[in-house]
Simulated scan of single mutants.
Amino acid sequence: MAESYVKQSINDGVSCIEFYNPPHNGLPSHLLLQLEQELIQASNNDAVKVVVLQSGGDRTFCAGASFNELITIETEAEGKIFFSGFAKVINAMRTCPKFIICKVQGKTVGGGVGIAAASDYCLATQYAAIKLSELSIGIGPFVIEPAVSRKIGVAAMSEMTINAEQFYDANWAKQKGLFAEVFETKEALDTAAEALSQKLKTYNPEAVKDMKNVMWQNTSHWDELLAERAKISGKLVLSDFTKQVLSKYKTT
C-alpha cells in the first residue's frame, strides 16, 4: 500500500500542496499538522503567488477524520487536540494572503467539506458528492460549521447536517456555492485549475491580500471559535454511542 504524505511543490509562482492517506484520504492528526505547516509556509513565501490544494488518488478527495485515530482517544484533552487539527488547517487557509484553489476530484465527507469550503475558489468533478456524516457517528460538524455556513449558508449546512447519511451530488454543491465549477473528468478539472492558477499568479499580490481580508471579514475570532468547537467534538467523541459506532469502522 502507498505511503501517506503531505507535500508541496512550487513552480513559477504556483504552490501545489497535496495530501494523501490511503484508502480514502481520511486525515490523522500528524497529516493535519503537516498540512497546516505547508499552508503557513506557502503563506510566508514571497515566491508563491497562488496555492493549489489537492489530494492524491483518483477517487475520494477527503473522508474527513481518521476513524482509526478517533477510536483511540481516551480523554477530552486528546479529543480537543485532534479536532483542533482541522481547526488549524481551516484557519491557515483563512489567513493565507494568497488565493487558494481547491481541486475536489471525488467524494468528500466531514472535515473534507470544511477544507473545500475554506478555499477561495473550489473546482470539482461530477463525482465530487459531499456529505456531513458527523451526527450519524454521535458527534457533529462543529469545527467546520463556520466555514461551511459561510460558503453555502446556514440552511444548506443544516440540511446536510440533519441528513447525515445522505450524499449530495456535485451539481447541488455548485448550486449552493461550494463549487464554482464542475467538470466531467479529472483531466478537465486539472486543465481548468492550471489555467486559473496561471491567471491568478499575475495579479497584484497586495490587491489579492487586501481582497482576501475583505472576503474573510468578520472571521478574526475564528482562532478562538474553532478551538471552542474542537472542545465540543473532543468531549462527544468519548461517548459510548460514538465509541460503538466507530468500532464498526476500525481497520487494521
Rank of each mutant, 00 (worst) to 15 (best):
residue 140 G to P: 09
residue 176 K to T: 15
residue 165 E to A: 10
residue 7 K to D: 03
residue 225 L to Y: 11
residue 51 V to W: 00
residue 80 K to I: 03
residue 55 S to L: 05
residue 56 G to R: 09
residue 194 E to C: 07
residue 181 E to I: 04
residue 212 K to M: 06
residue 249 Y to S: 15
residue 191 T to Y: 11
residue 129 A to Y: 11
residue 51 V to T: 03
residue 68 N to I: 06
residue 194 E to H: 05
residue 175 Q to A: 13
residue 241 F to D: 13
residue 23 P to A: 08
residue 202 T to N: 06
residue 88 K to S: 13
residue 248 K to F: 13
residue 208 V to S: 02
residue 1 M to A: 14
residue 44 N to H: 11
residue 209 K to I: 00
residue 128 A to S: 15
residue 213 N to T: 10
residue 170 A to Q: 11
residue 204 N to V: 09
residue 158 S to W: 12
residue 76 E to N: 14
residue 136 S to I: 02
residue 28 P to N: 07
residue 200 L to F: 04
residue 107 K to L: 10
residue 90 I to L: 15
residue 197 S to H: 00
residue 167 F to E: 05
residue 124 A to M: 09
residue 3 E to C: 06
residue 137 I to L: 11
residue 125 T to W: 03
residue 161 T to K: 13
residue 118 A to R: 03
residue 113 V to M: 07
residue 232 I to S: 07
residue 169 D to T: 09
residue 46 D to L: 02
residue 195 A to V: 08
residue 246 L to T: 03
residue 166 Q to P: 01
residue 223 D to H: 13
residue 219 T to S: 15
residue 241 F to A: 12
residue 19 F to E: 00
residue 170 A to T: 12
residue 45 N to Q: 06
residue 218 N to V: 11
residue 238 L to H: 08
residue 162 I to W: 03
residue 139 I to M: 11
residue 243 K to F: 08
residue 98 K to N: 03
residue 125 T to Y: 07
residue 220 S to H: 14
residue 156 A to D: 13
residue 77 A to C: 01
residue 171 N to M: 14
residue 165 E to C: 09
residue 240 D to Q: 13
residue 164 A to C: 14
residue 249 Y to Q: 14
residue 107 K to Y: 10
residue 232 I to Y: 04
residue 192 A to M: 11
residue 96 C to M: 07
residue 60 T to V: 13
residue 41 Q to V: 02
residue 42 A to E: 01
residue 163 N to Q: 10
residue 145 E to I: 02
residue 235 K to H: 13
residue 18 E to C: 09
residue 44 N to E: 06
residue 121 Y to D: 06
residue 221 H to P: 00
residue 209 K to C: 06
residue 193 A to W: 02
residue 146 P to I: 14
residue 204 N to D: 15
residue 31 L to W: 03
residue 186 K to W: 05
residue 125 T to Q: 08
